[in-house]
């Protein structure tokens, strides 16, 4: 069964239609990139799938079950993890506690009043940190970390929910090039080994064409093309869409896998 299926999503802000009739799918073990110039509606679509925005029309199915109107909390319980464009972690806590917090929530223990939180699920949390290569920083405050490392912690937090699907909004934004490829390699490995589905938006075309199994191109709130990276690279409609957007145009025309 298809892991994630969005059908006919639509969202308007006042008179501006930010997404119209957007349909997409993500399968298990597949990385799907959602690209498009600024203002194309990427974040709108993303937030409708993540539960931060309510769709005006259309539906979202996870494993065939409708989650269109589910809150972000419900989506977490049903197996969706996510990272944010600007990394969101609990900066007043240690790195380990960030993961422990996610595990506590997953085990529905967030209302416990007595045993100290820092003693819950230490081993599991350390294991997850090891998977993203951050076990060495477990007891450091999250606020002291380099930005790239916070993004790794975020990924570990998302994994702590034992998700089937991970949503990543511009996973490499704000990172140095070396950090970018390391993070995406890590994501790639996770996806294959855990048979996760990943849907991500991205501006960096090297990342998109280096890691995505399929690419969806959004323009003016509509999907204008979808297919394997090679096909998208040659698609004239896509080239046209990116004309003028030099940031996206250059790597699209020159880079090769």
């Amino acid at each position: 069964m298809t892991l994630l299926e969005a059908k006919g999503l639509r969202k308007a802000f006042g008179g501006v239609v930010a997404a119209r009739d957007v349909s997409l799918t993500v399968e298990r073990g597949e990385m799907v990139a959602l690209i498009g110039p600024n203002g194309a509606g990427k974040s709108t679509v993303f937030n409708m799938i993540g539960g931060q925005l309510r769709a005006d029309a259309g539906s979202v199915l996870l494993d065939g079950v409708a989650i269109t109107d589910a809150t972000p909390q419900d989506r977490f319980r049903k197996g969706i993890g996510r990272t944010f464009q600007v990394a969101q972690a609990f900066l007043s806590m240690t790195v380990l506690e960030n993961i422990q917090m996610a595990l506590i929530s997953r085990h529905r223990e967030a209302l416990r009043l007595w045993t100290p939180a820092r003693e819950r699920y230490r081993e599991d949390a350390l294991q997850l940190l090891a998977q993203v290569g951050m076990e060495g920083t477990a007891n450091r405050s999250c606020a002291e970390l380099a930005y790239g490392d916070v993004k790794r912690v975020e990924l570990a937090i998302a994994l702590a929910g034992d998700p089937k699907l991970i949503l990543m909004d511009e996973p490499t934004a704000g990172m140095a090039p070396a950090e970018r490829s390391a993070l995406m390699e890590l994501t790639d490995t996770m996806t294959r080994s855990r048979r996760l589905g990943v849907l991500f938006t991205e501006h960096d075309m090297d990342v998109v064409f280096g890691h995505a199994d399929r690419v969806l191109v959004l323009l003016g709130g509509q999907i204008i093309a979808s297919g394997p990276p090679e096909e998208i690279r040659r698609n004239p409609k896509v080239r046209e869409a990116y004309l003028g957007d030099t940031h996206g145009l250059r790597p699209l025309l020159t880079s090769s896998p």
Partner: peptide, 8 residues
């Protein structure tokens, strides 16, 4: 947002 997305 992070708290909500881990189900809190």
């Amino acid at each position: 947002p992070r708290a909500e997305s881990i189900g809190l």
